[in-house]
Design a protein around this nucleic acid. Structure first.
Lengths: 134, 134, 134, 134
DNA sequence: GTGGTCTAGACCACA
DNA sequence: GTGGTCTAGACCACT
């Protein structure tokens, strides 16, 4: 489970954890039934207070994305594929819209914005693939 | 000076003000030397406490984007064009990168992401232009 | 953390706090990573409103001299030694220059100015040392 | 009458005016009976609001350093030599003390502080003399 | 426990 | 008229 915490972003740590776990579940990088890192392990690795992780996990459970199995740990819950697709589409549209609005406001031509997006896409894609080959 | 405050976003009001004024300065919608709305006027219009606006303005001054002239008001500061362009480019790249990463993670093909971006661009662009024609 | 506030100087309290904390950090009396007094504690001790202290701390953070760790407290940030030395040298030169200009303008001979400076230096130095021996 | 206003120092303009005129009177650069620049002229030259200069002049009059002759203008008042010397000594001690305290706090050796003071003294002195020869 | 944000309202200083 | 400062007190979020 790869998580990156930015201590200086102003975004609460527990939210960063939720956000990233949620994304990975949506993207299928964390699949149904898979066990999440234990609170202690994750807290130790990220060097944050265990209570913070515990809070994030509790909220993921409330959200229905994770299930607690007593005495064992937390597992990725079953999510309707349709709902998953819907959420993914919503998140994508949100972020693309922000990008579009910024480009319009700063007067970057649409072709240039699209080109830049594709460039960044390819750069990130190849990096990701090389990781998954390791 | 058009500002929109979302009281339910969780983002502090003063930060929303800073963010939007900063963007408008960068985009040239607020030009060098132009006077900003007075603290009291803006506070009245947005229905927030004057101190909240004052805090936002103070931080814009610290950031070097605005200059206070005592007893007169707050004015858009002189910003090096090169620095402005640099900041704009950085902001654009940041947001486009987030979009690209999301698209990769959710396995949306690059062409589709680019097409969606252009769609949203045009939609927002035409909306903006119709405003400025009013 | 020893701070002295002069309520009658006309200098805003939050600025006096910033100024003194900044100096102590520069002088190494507050060292990297050290925790500052909590907002409430300092406010109580100095008998001022917590918001006033909070404002000072927020600006120290903007200045890069302090780091907030949410829910924990404020800590002295890591400052490059070279930058620290530079700042100290600048501050010293500024104040010495003001003194020199005044002496020239009031036609006090250079030897007398230097002698007076050394006298005052020793007086203050011995006072400081006796404090630290308590 | 040479005055320099720093619009970014945070010190009120009228105080900067008072401060500098007072110093020049103390130093004898403005001598008893000499006429001060008119409010309009000085305001025009410094590019500040005439009311600001007017306020400064009024306070100099209250302080007894200047005398208003109706219909003519403002003149440097007669000041007891003893009082003048006293004020000069006080101002000098104040500024030298600040320098000494800073040097002690930043651990600059007294000899180095004294040497630096003398250097700055000579530099400023020679600059001043060359001006007065023009 | 920590700091952050906001309000309502007062008073000051500046131009 | 402008912005700056401070207070008292409430409520929130984070650890």
């Amino acid at each position: 489970m790869l998580l990156e915490i930015d201590h200086h972003s102003g975004v609460p740590i527990y939210r960063q954890v939720i956000e990233q776990v949620r994304r990975q579940i949506m993207a299928g990088q964390l699949s149904e039934g898979q066990q999440l890192d234990s609170v202690r392990e994750l807290a130790g690795r990220l060097r944050v207070n265990p209570m913070t992780i515990s809070k994030a996990y509790a909220l993921l459970e409330v959200e229905g994305l994770a299930e607690r199995r007593r005495g064992i740990g937390l597992f990725v819950a079953r999510v309707q594929t349709s709902q998953k697709e819907q959420t993914k589409a919503r998140l994508l549209e949100e972020i693309l819209k922000k990008a579009a609005v910024t480009a319009v406001q700063f007067e970057m031509p649409e072709e240039e914005a699209a080109r830049m997006l594709v460039d960044l896409y390819r750069k990130h894609d190849s990096k990701t693939r090389s990781y998954s080959n390791e």
